[in-house]
Amino acid sequence: MTTAITAEQMRHYDSYTINTIGIPSLVLMERAALAVRDHITERFAQQLNQVVVVAGSGNNGGDGLAVARLLHLAGATVSIINVGNPDHASAEHRTQDQICQYYQLPQTTNLAPLKHASLVVDAIFGIGIDRPVTGHYADVIDAINNCSAPVVAVDIPSGINTDTGAVMGTAVKATTTVTFACNKVGLTTSNGQHYAGQLVVATDMGTYVTDK
Rank of each mutant, 00 (worst) to 15 (best):
T2E: 01
T3C: 01
A4F: 08
A4N: 07
I5P: 11
I5M: 08
I5N: 12
I5A: 10
T6G: 10
A7W: 02
A7D: 01
A7C: 08
E8T: 14
E8M: 09
E8L: 09
E8P: 06
E8C: 08
Q9T: 10
R11C: 04
Y13R: 15
Y13V: 14
I18G: 05
I21W: 06
G22K: 08
G22T: 05
I23A: 06
V27R: 09
V27H: 13
L28V: 09
L34N: 13
R37W: 11
D38G: 12
R43C: 05
R43Q: 07
F44R: 13
F44H: 15
F44P: 14
L48P: 07
N49H: 15
V51F: 03
V52S: 11
V53A: 14
V54A: 05
V54Q: 03
A55W: 04
N59P: 04
N60E: 03
G64T: 02
A66C: 01
A66M: 00
V67L: 03
H72P: 05
A74S: 03
A74H: 04
G75L: 05
T77H: 12
S79P: 06
S79A: 15
I81G: 11
G84D: 10
G84Q: 10
N85M: 12
P86E: 01
P86S: 01
H88K: 15
A89I: 00
S90D: 05
S90T: 15
R94F: 04
Q98K: 15
I99F: 12
C100T: 15
Q101R: 05
Y102G: 11
Y103M: 06
Y103L: 06
Q104H: 13
L105V: 00
P106W: 09
Q107P: 00
T108F: 06
T108L: 03
A112S: 07
P113E: 08
P113F: 12
L114H: 08
L114Q: 02
K115T: 08
L119A: 13
L119N: 12
L119C: 14
V120H: 06
V120K: 01
D122T: 11
D122F: 12
A123T: 06
I124R: 03
I124H: 04
F125M: 07
R131W: 02
P132Y: 14
V133G: 00
T134K: 11
H136K: 08
D139A: 15
V140S: 14
V140D: 12
I141D: 01
C147T: 05
C147D: 00
P150E: 06
D155A: 07
P157S: 14
S158M: 06
S158Y: 01
G159Q: 06
T164Y: 13
A166W: 09
V172C: 07
V172Y: 10
V172E: 02
A174E: 02
T177H: 00
T177L: 00
T177M: 00
T179F: 07
T179Y: 09
F180Y: 15
A181D: 00
C182E: 02
K184E: 00
T188Q: 10
Q193C: 08
Q193V: 11
Y195W: 12
L199V: 15
D204P: 07
D204V: 14
D204E: 05
D204T: 14
M205R: 08
Y208R: 02
V209I: 06
T210Y: 07
D211Y: 09
K212I: 02
